[in-house]
Design a protein around this nucleic acid. Structure first.
Length: 122
RNA sequence: ACGCAGAUUCGGUUCAUCGCUGCCUCGACGAGAGGGGGAGGAAAGUCCGAGCAACACAGAGCACCGUGCAAGUUAACGGCUUGAUAUUCGAGAGGGUAUAGUAGUGUAACAGAAAAUAACCGCCCGGGCAGUAAGCGUCUUUCGGCGCGUCAGGGUAAGGGUGAAAAGGCGGGGUAAGAGCCCACCGCGAGGGCAGCAAUGUCGCUCGGUCAGUACGCCUCACGGGUUGCAAGGUUAUGUAUAUCGGCAAUUAAGGGUUGCUCGCCCGAUGCCGAGGGGUAAACCGCUAGAGGUGGCAAGUGAUUGUCAUCGUAGAUAAAUGAUGAACUAAAACAGAACUCGGCUUACGGGGUCUGCAAAUUU
């Protein structure tokens, strides 16, 4: 199973991000908010681009934002197979946004990430 | 030893599994494999000073801002070092704070008679007791004397519980009472000698009789200050404008630039010709070897400097340097590079080293 998360799987294009936030649909699983935009895949293969964000509004200190973002990325990396085993191949753009003023431990973040990915895979 | 003071230093480590990033080698510049790098003492605040870059540059006056003891140090500084003076905390080692000038000028809460002119209380002097006010007691035969009170006048700044601060202090003389009014000593100021580069210190010296209040401002003086910051700025690809630039013609006027204002200076509407390029958070350069680190020796009290040797030490771009588990040992503190340095300030669990202090306690 491929657990790597190279730069190619990160959402980096400005236009795609703008489209994601204007046209995507969202949800919330404590402590994460997520936004998703789906397209039909051209070659019938699953392809996902993901974006992690920790707003300065919730965590003032840069080192805390770093810590949380790294936990989110790690949780996604270890569980992204949930998406790739989906029955319905699409091209997905996903944004995961941290929404808590506390620095939360890895297990909670991982459980939230799992539930979000299971929802998206349906 | 415990306890203090100062300086300096460390800022979790190891293992396992799974990852991220850029560099080197193989491969084809791809995929992939291997190797060896990968946050801090403050990376932070953005408070000073520089480098670097672009733009501006015609100067003058006024304003504005910053700095303000001396000498040194440095690329530079408002930093640092050593020292000076005053004040303050501490038993001590030591620590904190302040510092140009005073010619002029303003303000000083509360308290206090009064906050710098001198008034008030008080003290003293001689006079009146009626005209708007007050006489009384006592001695005396009376005139009148004495005492108290009271009224206005004059002389005083010794005393007046305050306060951050009260117009030199103490003693003697002097006086109606007092006062540097006079004198001695101390203090203060000026000069001179000596010590020091200097700030300044000091004196068996000379002069001045009062010369010196404190705090905060205004003010004055000296020195300094162009603006914007790597999203600076440059190269390449694509290439449809209204930005922008140059030339010519035309026009002197709205406006713009020159840190703020005034003057001065410069540019100018529009047309034609030529150059140019918005966006795509495009790619690359800038981008890390630098006033660099470490060690030795030498100079210096020191900041620092010189010299020799040696080391190679993050360069990301939606943004890497991590996650989980285990052990040490206790779920380490503050905290995350964004062009680069020198400082300052602020945050910080727990240690290590060196030097010094010694009031109390224990050995």
């Amino acid at each position: 199973m491929d657990k790597r998360l190279p730069k190619l799987e990160k959402l980096r294009s400005f236009g795609a991000i703008r489209r994601l936030f204007t046209e995507g649909r969202g949800g919330f699983v404590y402590p994460l908010r997520y936004v998703v935009y789906a397209e039909h895949s051209d070659n019938d293969e699953m392809s996902v681009e993901v974006l992690f964000s920790t707003p300065k509004k919730f965590l003032k200190r840069a080192n805390k934002r770093n810590k949380v973002r790294r936990r989110m990325r790690e949780a996604y990396r270890l569980n992204k197979h949930l998406l790739y085993t989906s029955e319905d191949p699409r091209m997905l753009h996903v944004a995961l946004i941290y929404s808590s003023k506390e620095v939360i431990d890895f297990n909670t973040i991982e459980n939230a990430t799992k539930r979000i990915l299971e929802n998206l895979a349906k």
